[in-house]
Simulated scan of single mutants.
Amino acid sequence: MKRYMLSVALATALATTAHADMSGGAVKIGVLTDKSGVFSSLAGEGSVVAAQMAIEDFGDKLGVPVELVSADHQNKADVGTQIARQWYDVEGVDLIVDVPNSSVVLAVQELAREKNRVLIASGAGTAGLTNEACSPNGIHWTWDTYSVAVSTGKAMVKQGGDRWFFLTADYAFGHTMQKDVSAVVTAAGAEVVGNVVAPLNTADFSSYLLQAPSVNANVIALANGGTDTINSLKQAQEFGLTQQARIAGLAIFLTDVHSIGLEAAQGLYLTTGFYWDRTEESRNWSKRFFERHGAMPTMSQAGVYSAVTHYLNAIAKIGDDSAGPVIAQMKATPVNDFFAQNGVIRDDGRMVHDMYLAQVKTPSESTGPWDYYKILSTVPGDEAFRPLSESACPLVAK
């Protein structure tokens, strides 16, 4: 009996020690996303659902609560930073995740560095997060402008697209996208013959799109996202531009195709980090997600689940939710789940994993709702993402 009581006491002491390093007696995760604007379908409430699923599936492995909060950054850097500061300083949030919109995520990443907390970007696309603006506190999980530039750009040049015209969103993401894609396609032998920038939330793209025929472009590259991509693609079709040039959707998400419809989107080339119908594991998880959200997951939403799970597993392994030790553990552990196999988090914060070159099916090829992609090829992670030898990240040893 004494031996049993001693064992219980020892186990209790060990548990107390393991949980002593959990700040505030809980682990708190904040989903900072776009709930009402151009990125609300590809991220938004779906990202909140994905994070909640990750927490529920993780269970009570920490012995302390895992709490979730969420907020709408309204695609404004000052609003996003204000929310993040409140979360870090007052509410004890340990991790902020998702953050679609490049200007917002770049500002929040700097704040995470200042406060020594963790940021994992899933919805954001700017490759600058792990390049010139890299941070020891930031991890870029799902995709970036470089990874879609490499795959989509090369594929379209091979298909004869040698005169490119860019319709570019006038903020960090759009400009980085145009820069990365331009470098890839010109290296492959194509020419950039024109570009125009448009503000976020533009409703009428006609004056921008109609400049493409004047320079004899045979590729119109949409360096924008969310509803801006949807609207510009629909209007390109309405003006007959899809008969004169191929459309390159550089940041196309599953929900965009669902909104546009296969009739308008068919034949589009795109690069994605996740497709719900690719494997048995991705199908199983995606069907669970659909039951809760009413739509199949985008790569950003699936990436939120994967990132939150990896983060919580790291805390469970080391018994500490301090930013430095958790990030070190995350970087030391490969990512293996339905989202990625043998994913690796590099010193610059880039989570390197396979990407997939896909083409949107024709209506006759689709078997039903959400059956939208043909996966044409797998792009290995070390080819899809910017090599460290080309990195401007000061954390990377030269």
Rank of each mutant, 00 (worst) to 15 (best):
H258K: 15
A328F: 01
W164H: 09
A11V: 15
V31R: 06
A212V: 08
L129H: 10
S389R: 07
A112T: 12
L395D: 10
G240H: 05
L357P: 08
L222W: 04
Q329G: 09
I247K: 05
K234M: 12
T16A: 14
P199I: 03
N216A: 13
T130Q: 04
A20I: 08
I315F: 01
S122P: 11
M177W: 11
N313S: 13
D204F: 10
V257E: 00
G368P: 09
M296C: 05
V396T: 07
D337M: 00
E67T: 14
Q109F: 02
P100T: 09
I29F: 02
K28M: 11
T362M: 06
T126V: 12
V49M: 06
G80C: 06
V192G: 01
V118H: 06
F289Y: 14
V352G: 04
E263F: 03
G294P: 07
A323F: 04
V8K: 10
A314C: 11
R350E: 12
P334M: 04
D228A: 10
G30C: 10
G59C: 11
G161N: 09
D144P: 11
I327R: 02
D320R: 02
A190I: 08
F339V: 13
V48K: 03
K331A: 13
M330L: 10
S70L: 06
D204Y: 07
K115N: 05
N224E: 10
A51L: 05
I318T: 10
L222K: 04
V104F: 01
Y275F: 12
F338D: 14
G123Q: 04
Q301I: 13
A295C: 03
G160N: 12
G368H: 04
V379W: 00
T298Q: 04
I55D: 04
K61I: 05
A198G: 02
F205P: 01
M5R: 13
N75G: 09
N231V: 09
G138D: 00
V219Q: 06
Y88S: 06
R3L: 15
T145S: 14
A11W: 11
H293N: 15
P297H: 01
N101E: 09
L268V: 12
Q359D: 04
M5P: 02
F166Q: 01
A265T: 08
L210I: 15
P369D: 14
A190T: 02
A316C: 01
D21K: 15
V99C: 12
